[in-house]
Design a protein around this nucleic acid. Structure first.
Lengths: 119, 119
DNA sequence: CCAGGCTCATTAGTTAGGCTAACGAACGTG
DNA sequence: CACGTTCGTTAGCCTAACTAATGAGCCTGG
């Protein structure tokens, strides 16, 4: 999947964090760090880079002065949409190159691995 | 995949390089870099770390004074075996629960995905 | 009712792992 | 045999992860 990436200037980690943020609507840095399974200092740095690019904004927490509310900006949502479009186009191309039998093999493999992962 | 790896003292990149080297028997740094899909300077650093740990050794190329021959040491082979043992301990139970048909489906899926990844 | 302890975000510093540019030594060939 | 190519390495940069420490703000038990 990383082969489909170099379209934009966003790294996989940055895109993942931005997407998690947009899916959740708004999160504190701590919450986003937990979602991304990363320590808070790591998230501080990633958020700083996303803010520099204007993809994430912050606002004060309404009741807790220590915390901060992060949310994707409109520009951030557009970047996510563009990456999604490119990724899906890349995937569609790869899948189109497979035979029907190969597609069926992958479909069954997904089912098996999903069952293992849930066990 | 991007999480920190506290398990053992070998990183995934190092283990991958060491395993590729052991599978091939012996390789030059350039060849190992190509196998690992990495640039030569990156492999120089990784090999240096593996040498520090005594897992890889080097010897001069018999006919080309520029090149160098890398090979896993006995300690390196033991580290690979230990990692393999741990990994198989985790996988053995789930694999045992699959039918032969399901195992064959996964084997084919790995081949298909590997082909896409190498393309 | 406030002192002490906790949580939050951040800063500082380390490490791994990737990259490009550039370099010297060795090779090979026209 | 001079010159271009290849090989490994060095230097320098970046991202991304970690831990430790810090200051600000919150909360609670005497």
């Amino acid at each position: 999947m990383r082969q489909a990436r170099p379209v934009g200037h966003l790294t996989p980690s940055q895109l993942s964090a931005l997407t998690s943020l947009e899916l959740a609507g708004a999160l504190t840095p701590r919450e986003l760090a937990d979602v991304e399974r990363v320590q808070p200092p790591t998230m501080t740095k990633m958020v700083a880079k996303l803010e520099e690019q204007g993809l994430v904004g912050r606002s004060p927490h309404p009741t807790d002065g220590r915390q901060v509310i992060l949310a994707a900006t409109e520009a951030g949502r557009q970047v996510i949409a563009e990456h999604t479009r490119v990724r899906e186009a890349w995937l569609a191309q790869r899948i189109a190159e497979l035979t029907p039998e190969e597609r069926e093999t992958l479909r069954r493999a997904v089912e098996i691995l999903g069952r293992i992962a849930r066990a």
